[in-house]
Nucleic acid binder design. Structure first.
Length: 784
DNA sequence: ATTACTATTCTTTTT
DNA sequence: GAATAGTAAT
């Protein structure tokens, strides 16, 4: 073991050596936060503190895993596995699993992810005959989630005058009732959603003093990472857990608080010293990550925020290059420009692919970068988006597993009862669900007796068969591990056969995914318990409870591959890259259109900008496009107001991205119908600065354009359009014309009908037969 | 009852 | 333009 203390600066050492009592560490970006946290824990253990009595909570599994690994490295004895380190959600899930019965839950409770809970909400809205235009599932869900994160129970909600007035004014008076039925429904299903893992934990601690006392005594030291992102529920739980010893250490940076939409409140960090008047505060202000120019920009930008803890982030690193401002005409040009820039940097400065990250505000922005990177054969990987476990085939399989473990899980039941098809239709399903919801009996009781629900004939026989299968699977629970049960259920339910028999390309992909799932379960059961899990337990129930809490970002085994990384800024928090492209710096995107109405929202967007700037170690590009496709049509946005907040002295504006733009401008003018764009060609290069008015002035916003179809030497497309492919406007098409479709190939228009906005053509294609096509969206090129 | 087509909404950000 | 929900068609 090396002398870990000698690697620390004075402030870091102070934070590590502080032994007892509350401690708040304000850790600026790149100031060695994780190092301090891990060294502190290692030091405590070195001083003889029992690892079983140290609780450390993070927001991502990845952060937790990294901490464990680094502590192990310092100590070099494998003791770190005994630490209670994990995300809020996973640690609480583990405790709740042990204590579930005290709350009336089965210890094998199901964890609902957002899709599950949205589905529950949808059926509640339907069953109560509420208007789903008014009670949009997403809205209801976020409203319920917000209530839970503030520890407002359905009872509180219904009795709060202010909330009730608010809902009434929005013409949604039944939100409170919906909330109440949702909670009841989840309880009956034996399920907790993500928020429940916090809410129920709070309930557990407040309603059961003996349990509270047990964990209070147990956790002698409590450490919280990313404290600025905690919400009310997390705050209260942490406070309860640490109340006995008051050895609470929180680490955070108010400037990087970017999760208020999830209920996080920056107040938690701002008021820590009010809660603990004798708390010691340590500020880590030396940045080891970035160049001076990058820190300069970051500081200048964040200074526009009013609400913050004063601090002075500085670095002893080199000055570095200026920040490169890139403007392009369209989102496709932006993609092209950045792919070119990566190529150039690799050649000139010997960077590897993995040294680059493209960071955007919304997931939807990834498309143009994927296309341009693929065109240059630059390997990349997108982080975020839908994870492996969100694929349909995986959800279906997992639903079977869930139902075996918890046969009251209605969401799982609905997924599997007729998949693979076994002749149980909507009518039978409705009968079962109605009875289960109206009677006192559980879903599983009803299913076991289909006759009582008024189901006869073939459907009844099918259900009885289903029940026998499930009962058999349940009988395996006690004696078999997760993999054995999963394998057996796939076989008996015909699920695996269903996927195997689908010989289409997508079908084979689904089959492979299912095999991958089975492999991962096998791996889970065969891996010895090194993750600090207390019960040496490889049961199916234990497996299910952990996978719901996994996200795509945790799937890190190939994280060191040499690929360019694409992700949202949120997902990039805590990471660093030599070269960063902060893209889409446009009004309505970044800052997001929904956040510019109040100071709070705007300041959070600015913190997000601060986060993306400080991800860069050496080089930073900031880019924006004047025109961009959104919802399938072209809109123009002004450059983000944040660009103006970057001091001129740090900016290099010579990267106009004109080269990329010129090529596509030629393509546009070829079609002859795009004159309005030619006007804007005068913009780049011609004008001096980046005044707001520089954009293409008044092009029509709803015209249909072809989207980035590269006419020349395009490669890598599945159905490749010919070199002469030129999309025509809907009006110019007529019956009898020979046309080319981007996907379907050549054909003849046999009919056109519909009005201006919904013109539709019936086209007979040479290869794929007759299709009806909405002209507004189609890409059709006239041949004759 | 399953498939195929049409209409509608969607874009913040995630455990 | 994509994903989804709803509806028409075999």
């Amino acid at each position: 073991m090396f002398n870990y203390l000698s690697e620390l600066n004075e402030k870091q050492k102070e934070a590590v050596l502080h032994r007892d009592g509350p401690l708040i560490i304000i850790a600026g970006a790149g100031s060695g936060k994780t190092k301090v946290l891990t060294t502190r824990i290692a030091h405590l253990m070195k001083q003889g503190v029992d690892p079983f009595r140290i609780l450390a909570l993070t927001f991502t599994n990845k952060a937790a895993a990294e901490m464990k690994e680094r502590i192990d490295k310092i100590l070099g004895n494998n003791e770190a596995r005994n630490l209670y380190i994990g995300t809020f959600h996973s640690v609480f899930a583990r405790i709740l699993r042990i204590e579930a019965e005290k709350l009336g839950y089965p210890s094998n409770f199901t964890i609902y992810d957002s899709d599950d809970s949205r589905s529950v909400i949808k059926s509640l809205v339907q069953n109560n005959n509420l208007d789903d235009k008014l009670y949009k599932p997403n809205l209801v869900q976020s409203r319920i989630s917000a209530a839970k994160n503030s520890l407002i129970t359905p009872y509180d909600y219904l009795n709060d005058k202010h909330i009730q007035m608010e809902d009434a004014r929005a013409n949604r008076p039944y939100l409170g009732q919906l909330y109440a039925s949702y909670v009841e429904k989840c309880f009956r299903n034996g399920a907790m959603d993500f928020d429940d893992l916090l809410v129920k934990m709070y309930e557990l601690l407040t309603r059961h003093p003996d349990v509270l006392s047990k964990y209070q005594h147990r956790f002698q030291y409590v450490l919280i990472d990313e404290y600025q992102d905690t919400n009310m529920a997390q705050y209260k739980i942490v406070k309860l857990l640490s109340a006995m010893h008051e050895n609470i250490c929180v680490v955070g940076d108010d400037a990087q608080s970017i999760y208020s939409f999830r209920g996080a409140t920056i107040e938690n960090i701002l008021r820590f010293q009010d809660d603990y008047p004798d708390a010691q505060m340590v500020k880590l202000e030396q940045n080891y990550r970035c160049t001076q120019n990058i820190i300069g920009v970051a500081n200048a930008v964040i200074n526009n925020n009013k609400k913050q803890i004063p601090k002075d982030l500085w670095t002893g690193n080199d000055t570095g290059e200026k920040i490169k401002l890139v403007r392009t005409l369209t989102d496709n040009d932006e993609g092209r420009y950045i792919a070119d820039a990566i190529q150039e940097q690799k050649l000139r400065n010997h960077y590897q692919n993995k040294d680059f990250a493209i960071l955007y505000r919304t997931n939807a922005q990834s498309r143009s970068f994927e296309e341009s990177l693929r065109r240059l054969n630059i390997p990349y990987r997108i982080f975020g988006g839908l994870s492996f476990y969100q694929r349909k085939e995986i959800r279906d399989y997992v639903a079977y597993l869930r139902f075996v473990v918890n046969p009251n899980d209605e969401e799982a039941f609905k997924r599997i009862i007729n998949f693979p098809a076994r002749g149980i239709g909507k009518t039978s399903l409705d009968k079962i669900l109605t009875l289960a919801n109206q009677s006192e009996h559980s879903l599983w009781t009803i299913v076991q007796n289909p006759a009582a629900a008024g189901i006869g004939g073939a459907a009844r026989a099918a259900i009885e068969q289903f029940v026998v299968m499930m009962q058999y699977m349940q009988s395996m629970l006690a004696s078999r591990n997760a993999y054995e049960i999963a394998f057996e259920i796939g076989k008996r339910s015909q699920l695996v056969a269903e996927f195997y028999n689908d010989k289409s390309v997508e079908g084979q992909a689904r089959y492979e995914n299912v095999q991958a799932l089975l492999n991962s379960i096998k791996e889970y059961t065969e891996t010895p318990n090194e993750d600090g899990e207390l019960e040496a337990n490889k049961s199916l129930g234990a497996y299910l409870q952990q996978i719901t809490l996994l996200t795509d970002a945790d799937n890190d085994n190939d994280g060191n591959q040499d690929v360019v990384k694409l992700m949202t800024i949120h997902a990039a928090k805590g990471l660093e890259f030599p070269c960063v492209f902060a893209v889409g710096l446009e009004e309505n995107i970044f800052p997001s259109a929904m956040s510019v109405y109040d100071r709070e929202g705007l300041e959070e967007e600015r913190r997000l900008f601060y986060v993306v700037i400080t991800r860069a170690k050496e080089k930073l590009w900031v880019s924006f496009a004047h025109n961009r496709y959104r919802f399938g049509n072209l809109v123009s946005n002004e450059p983000s107001r944040f660009i103006e907040e970057i001091p001129e002295t740090y900016l290099d504006k010579s990267f106009a991205g004109v080269a990329g733009a010129r090529g596509s401008l030629n393509n546009w003018s070829d079609t002859g119908s795009r004159q309005s764009f030619n006007r804007s060609t005068a913009g780049p290069g011609g004008r001096s600065g980046f005044s707001r008015s520089a954009g293409a002035p008044e092009e029509k916003k709803n015209t249909t354009f072809s989207r980035g179809v590269a006419p020349a030497a395009g490669s890598g497309y599945v159905h490749r359009p010919t070199a002469t492919f030129r999309p025509a406007s809907p009006e110019s098409l007529a019956e009898g014309m020979k046309v080319e479709h981007q996907k379907f190939g050549f054909g003849t228009i046999s009919r056109i009908d519909g009005g201006q906005s919904n013109r539709m053509a019936t086209i007979h294609f040479d290869n794929v037969g007759e299709k009806k096509i909405m002209l507004q969206y189609a890409k059709l090129s006239i041949i004759q």
